[in-house]
Simulated assay, not measured.
Amino acid sequence: MNYLVDENGFYGEFGGAFIPEMLRVNINKLKNIYNKYRNDSKFQKLYREILKNYVGRPTPLFFCKKYSDKYKTKIYLKREDLNHTGSHKINNTIGQCLLAIKLGKKNIIAETGAGQHGIATATTCAMMGLKCFVFMGVIDMHRQEMNVIRMKTLGANVIPVSFGSKTLKDAINEAIRFWINNNKSYYLIGSTVGPHPYPQIVSEFQSIISEEIKIQLKNEGHLNPNYIISCIGGGSNAAGSFYHYLNNSLVKLIAVEAAGLGIKSNKTAATIACGSKGILHGSMTIILQDKYGQVLPTYSISPGLDYPGIGPMHANLFMKKRVNFFNVTDKEALQAGYELIESEGIIPALESAHALAVLKKISFNKNDVVVITLSGRGDKDINVYKKFYNL
């Protein structure tokens, strides 16, 4: 079964480009430039060289001995937290900034929730000599203050968004609004959301993750993993982790959503568990909405997962039953994150901690090979861990 995008920008029944006519020219130019360079050897060589020499790829695939003993299986962590800037986000920002330069754009617009995409964008813009504007909800700015300081230090103009839920959804709304009025800028989306070709672009730049996993597992003596587990909000790190295994039915793919205070509460961000088909930020996908089609407010202790939708690629994977979706509460994620800290000396981002928490929900065989993508490091969340555990 083909799980990738078709020529019209759809993943099955999901995707497309539902956008104002004022953005149509920009979207078409982006689609054309990406189709020109996505398989261009010189472009790809430059992209890979920057990933190697600036980002520090390949990231390690770390075997967790104590963790594996506890869960009686073989657990590996794909260490995206060891990238420059501390997450997987920079895999995408470097690729898209190179595209922006090809388009002659010098002003970059971005949105961020946890701050990791904002930092990756600000870092890449500083390195490439581009101006950077980052939209961020004021609630996220408060709970991710250290990342706001880092973005400003890197020269980014961080623009607070103080309407709506004041989190990631509204940061994207304002970024798109700004883009409409400043269409000479380049909008650098951080996840596999938005109008085509953005979900395709982000998933293909992030596919470096599963490309490396295949090589690294082979070096460990494993042909395939039995499971790949990733947290999911919009879905960029999940797309990258799953990409090269989508057509391999031997590999079970698991995505873990943020349940917040529980899927039966009004404080959740579990799109697949609680959502329905609708249009959000330019694409047909699955979203959290009321019976009138109004997008519902979301909640998660993890700002990177605090989003009322999911990328169209993942909506299709859910409908076709290729990916199994779980959801994890705030408390479960915090407990799982602290368990990794104590057992392996690694502080995971709260987003990644959701993926770790699903280990308690699955019965593994002792010879199973389980790969969990550690999408980011938890420095930004240390005050949350401190408060929860009274440190």
Results as ranks from 00 to 15, higher is better:
residue 109 I to D: 03
residue 134 V to G: 15
residue 319 M to S: 12
residue 105 K to N: 03
residue 196 H to A: 09
residue 176 I to A: 15
residue 58 P to C: 15
residue 75 I to W: 02
residue 207 S to G: 03
residue 123 T to A: 09
residue 174 E to G: 05
residue 314 H to N: 13
residue 160 P to A: 05
residue 199 P to T: 14
residue 383 N to P: 06
residue 48 R to Q: 12
residue 67 Y to V: 08
residue 363 S to F: 11
residue 370 V to I: 11
residue 135 F to W: 12
residue 391 L to G: 10
residue 67 Y to G: 05
residue 59 T to N: 12
residue 244 H to W: 07
residue 202 V to E: 13
residue 32 N to S: 10
residue 359 L to S: 12
residue 364 F to Y: 11
residue 296 L to G: 03
residue 91 N to E: 04
residue 304 G to H: 15
residue 95 G to C: 08
residue 372 I to Y: 01
residue 65 K to F: 06
residue 62 F to H: 05
residue 134 V to T: 15
residue 311 G to F: 15
residue 247 N to M: 03
residue 112 T to C: 07
residue 22 M to N: 15
residue 171 A to E: 12
residue 61 L to P: 13
residue 22 M to S: 15
residue 126 A to I: 01
residue 68 S to M: 12
residue 247 N to W: 00
residue 128 M to G: 01
residue 158 V to Q: 02
residue 175 A to T: 04
residue 371 V to N: 03
residue 362 I to E: 06
residue 379 D to A: 08
residue 142 H to Y: 07
residue 204 E to F: 00
residue 291 K to G: 08
residue 258 A to N: 07
residue 233 G to S: 09
residue 352 S to V: 07
residue 20 P to T: 11
residue 294 Q to G: 03
residue 39 N to V: 00
residue 349 A to N: 13
residue 119 I to W: 01
residue 123 T to S: 13
residue 31 K to L: 14
residue 183 N to E: 15
residue 325 F to A: 08
residue 51 L to V: 02
residue 36 K to D: 00
residue 75 I to V: 04
residue 367 N to T: 09
residue 172 I to T: 10
residue 123 T to W: 05
residue 96 Q to A: 15
residue 352 S to E: 03
residue 99 L to W: 00
residue 361 K to G: 05
residue 198 Y to I: 01
residue 112 T to D: 09
residue 5 V to A: 03
residue 324 N to G: 04
residue 377 R to W: 14
residue 68 S to W: 11
residue 205 F to Q: 00
residue 320 K to H: 12
residue 73 T to W: 02
residue 67 Y to F: 12
residue 174 E to V: 10
residue 248 N to W: 03
residue 167 T to P: 11
residue 2 N to K: 08
residue 374 L to C: 05
residue 374 L to Y: 01
residue 195 P to D: 01
residue 192 T to A: 14
residue 28 N to V: 04
residue 300 S to R: 02
residue 184 K to V: 10
residue 305 L to G: 06
residue 295 V to Q: 13
residue 158 V to G: 09
residue 123 T to V: 04
residue 299 Y to N: 05
residue 88 H to P: 07
residue 369 V to K: 02
residue 174 E to P: 11
residue 369 V to C: 05
residue 337 G to L: 03
residue 360 K to H: 06
residue 171 A to Q: 07
residue 158 V to A: 03
